[in-house]
Design a protein around this nucleic acid. Sequence first.
DNA 1: ATCCCGAGGG
DNA 2: CCCTCTGGAT
Length: 217
Amino acid sequence: MNRDLLSAMVVERLLQAWPKAETLLRHDNCYQLMIAVILSSRTTDAQVNVVTEKLFRRFPDAKSLAEADGEEVEDLIHSVGFYRVKARHIVAAAAALLEKFDGSVPESMEELLMIPGLGRKGANVVLGDCFGKPAIIVDTHFGRVVRRIGLSDSENPAIVEREVKSLIPSADQTDFSMAANLHGRYVCLSRNPRCSECVVQDVCRYFSDRNRSSDDR
DNA sequence: ATCCCGAGGG
DNA sequence: CCCTCTGGAT
């Protein structure tokens, strides 16, 4: 099956399974979402949400966080892991908002990538979830899902983003990112994928390859 | 390519 | 014990 047809079927079914889901990172505004996204790198969202509850009470805006004591921030976010780098990043990110972007979160990919700790994945989360722009959010779940299905063959997130973006209508991109993410979390698990519960099993390359190899035994 | 790093699950 | 978790910077 060609990728245009495959992607159309996959989009339709995953959007039906997880209709217009939003990020699981708790936040009240774009500043908070930006900080939460920086903290979420290689960390479960549940861990991030525990930490941000305290963090945002102590530092409710970019100004207070930009002036924060580094060690206090490290202590507050310790349980998310990578706490030294992340503490440095979120303080510098808050400072960048004040110095370069007039205190608010910028709305373009180019500007978002100037913020310490934000890469393409984090920038796309902000673009999609905060500003309603079309975003392909390639995190560990999304990448695994689209590679297994056969929508991309690349391990490079930037290439996966570009390939999948070309396959999916702009209006569906952000919703599909979240749907594929949830599909990866709860069904297309990294270690023991639950293919019997999967809504795209019949068109999935990984599933057919898996059965082929078990037939050989 | 390597480092950052804690927490939870199997 | 090993693997994984919404990666990013050097």
